[in-house]
Design a protein around this nucleic acid. Structure first.
Lengths: 120, 120
DNA sequence: TTGACATATTCCGTAACGGGAATATGATTC
DNA sequence: GAATCATATTCCCGTTACGGAATATGTCAA
């Protein structure tokens, strides 16, 4: 099985650095495709393709305005990513993480290691 | 250019769902490889490979203990991801985001009604 | 040693990926 | 209509992904 498609979810879509840049650029205000091209200095087809991916996973929204197409970041779609990372917050800071860690470490030693009569 | 390698950074490493599961499992306490295999019901070589990727980007740490190799999540390596997502927090909640949104919505509306067939 | 257990690596196959170039679609103006 | 501007899609290419199966490495025990 190959890697999951970039359009499968926000995690995959955001793995590409240029797409992250695009999201940052489109977050404060909506912009036309050519603005992205100019600002990030990417080829136009490349931008269109990245925007397509972002659109498919709901990370951007789109609106037609005359000849141009305006895109904007849909920040809500980044919430799951943020929340997922937040689950680890307690482990990189704060005491709760350490205390719990220590307690479970303790339990592991007594349970798992003993289950097969292992030494050490 | 193909997609960046999974070992290039945390974003790419975390794009794979199984690796996220592994990180969750290894966050509270360190575990042997076989524990991961048993708990997540993955093939052993698969787990070893995923752990290798996670190790390369610093998302887990490793320690040998007799025959087994114990892994644990290095939560600090997830901080950049969390911080990146946090930059969008103001856009999905909070007033700044909404105010700006409303302002633009307003402007969009005025343009549409006022200047119906203009040039750009 | 030899054998078992635990984990890692290699090789294979299929399936994206992302860039570039060319081309297609869409909307506006003349 | 035709020309033009703005964006999207298609095709080709070299690279990488992940899974499965087989095999290799490493550690302990008898």
């Amino acid at each position: 099985m190959p890697r999951a498609t970039t359009t499968s979810d926000a995690f995959n879509a955001v793995a590409e650095p240029r797409r992250r840049e695009i999201l940052e650029f489109l977050a404060p205000q909506e912009r036309a495709v050519n603005d992205v091209v100019a600002e990030l200095r990417l080829a136009q087809p490349s931008v269109s393709k990245h925007l397509r991916v972002l659109l498919d996973v709901g990370l951007v929204q789109m609106r037609r305005e005359g000849r141009q197409v305006l895109y904007r970041t849909n920040a809500k779609a980044l919430q799951p990513l943020h929340e997922w990372a937040s689950r680890f917050e307690r482990y990189w800071r704060g005491q709760l993480g350490r205390v719990k860690e220590r307690a479970e470490e303790q339990e592991r030693r007594t349970n798992e290691t003993t289950k097969k009569g292992r030494k050490r």
